[in-house]
Design a protein around this nucleic acid. Sequence first.
DNA 1: TTGTCAATTGTCAGACGCTGCCATAATCTC
DNA 2: GAGATTATGGCAGCGTCTGACAATTGACAA
Lengths: 219, 219
Amino acid sequence: MHAIEDAGSRPAPPGLRERKKRRTRDTLIRCALELFALQGYERTTVDAIAEAADVSPRTFFRYFAGKEEVAFALQDSVESSFCAALRERPAAESPLAALRGAVLTSWDSLGEEVGSVVPLELHMRTYRMIESTPALLAVHLRRLSEVEERLAHEIARREGLDLATDPRPRVLLAAFGGVMRVTGRIWGEQGGAGMTELRGIIADHLDQLGPALAENWRT
Amino acid sequence: MHAIEDAGSRPAPPGLRERKKRRTRDTLIRCALELFALQGYERTTVDAIAEAADVSPRTFFRYFAGKEEVAFALQDSVESSFCAALRERPAAESPLAALRGAVLTSWDSLGEEVGSVVPLELHMRTYRMIESTPALLAVHLRRLSEVEERLAHEIARREGLDLATDPRPRVLLAAFGGVMRVTGRIWGEQGGAGMTELRGIIADHLDQLGPALAENWRT
DNA sequence: TTGTCAATTGTCAGACGCTGCCATAATCTC
DNA sequence: GAGATTATGGCAGCGTCTGACAATTGACAA
C-alpha cells in the first residue's frame, strides 16, 4: 500500500530485488577497481574482492563471467556512448569526419554515467592498469575489434553500402581503430594526463593519418 | 672420440642434449596443435598434451609458459620472417610500399620453416582456431600490436625519424596492422581458403586504404 | 497476514591452469 | 670414470572457474 502510483510508462519502477542486485553489482565493481589500483590486478584474488564486497566468491561469478570482466565493466559505457554518438552525426559528414566528431564529443558526456559508480580518477587509473597488464591489454584489444566491427556496420548503413562486397568501411575502421589504440597507449604512458590531453593526442594523430600513407614523407 | 671436427664457426654442433630438447619441444607443439584441431582449444587439457607427447605435465610448463603459448609457437616464425623481409626492402621504397612488399613476399618463404615441424594444413587450421577462440584471439591481437611497434621502429629508422616526436610511423603501422587483422579475419571466415587467396585479399584491402580515408565515397 | 513460487545466495566438491620444491636420472666436462 | 650441470618427474599447493544442492529472500496473490 501507499506504493508510488507511477505513470505506468516504460521504465517500470525497479522493485527491491532489482535495486539490491544493482547495488551488489556496483559494490563489486567499486571494490574490485579499488583493490586493483591498490595492489595490482594479478595480486588481487576474487576471494578478496568478494570479501570486500561482503558476498561469497561464488556470487561474484554470478555477476561477472570472470575476473577480467569486472575490470571492463565501465568500459562498456564508454563504448556504447561512442556508438551512440556516431549514430547522431549529421549524414552530410564524410565517414572519417563523422568518426572524428563522434570520438571527440563522446569523451565529454560519459563523465556522469561513470561517475555514478566510481570516482572518475579511479576509472582513469583502471584504464592505465589495463594498458599495462598484458592479460588485460589482450582482452581490451579484442573488445576494441568488436567495437570496430559494430562501427563498420554503422558506417556502411550511413553510406548505403554492403559490407560483404565493399571493403572500405572495415578498412576505414581498421585504420581509425588503430589510431585510437596508439593514442590510448601514448596517453597511458605519460603518467597522470587528463581528458584534455587525450583529446589533443587523438586530434593530432588523426590528422597524421593522411600524411602517413603518402608516398613521400620528406616534405 | 670420433666427434665431427666441425669448422668451428658460429652454429656450434648441437650436442645430444640440445637435439633432444628440440625434439621434445617439436613433439609437444605437434601433439598440442593436433589435439586442438581435433577437439578444440578449451577442451584440450595440458595433461592430455603431455600424455600424448609422453612427458609429465610439469615438463610441459618448462617448455611453454602456458597453454596459450604453444598455440602461437609457429606464429613466431611468421612474424620474425615478416620483420626480416621489411629490413631487406630497398631504401628507395616509400614506407607503405615497403610494408606492402614485405608482407606479400614473406608469405612465400615461411612454408619450409613451418613445414619442418607440422604439416602446413595443420598450421592454417591453427590460425583459424586462433581467430575463432576468444581467449586466443585476444592474445593474438596483443602480439600483433607488439609486432606493429617493432615495425614502427624499423620504419622510423629507414626514414631517419624520431619516434618520440613524429607520430607518422606509429600511425602508419596502426593503419597497416588494422588492415592486416581485417584481412586475416575475412580469410579465416571463408573456410578452406589457401595462401593464394590470402595474398589477393591483402592486396585488395591495402589498395582500399587511400579511398577509405577520402572525403567523398560516392564516386 | 499468510502461503506459494521464483530468484538470489551460500556452501561444498572438484576440474583445470600454473608454480615452487626436492629427488632422480640423464648428459656434459674433465 | 668422477664430478658438475641440466633435464625430468612427482608432489603439494594456490587461484580461477563451474556444477549441484540447500537455504534464504523478495514478489505476488488468496
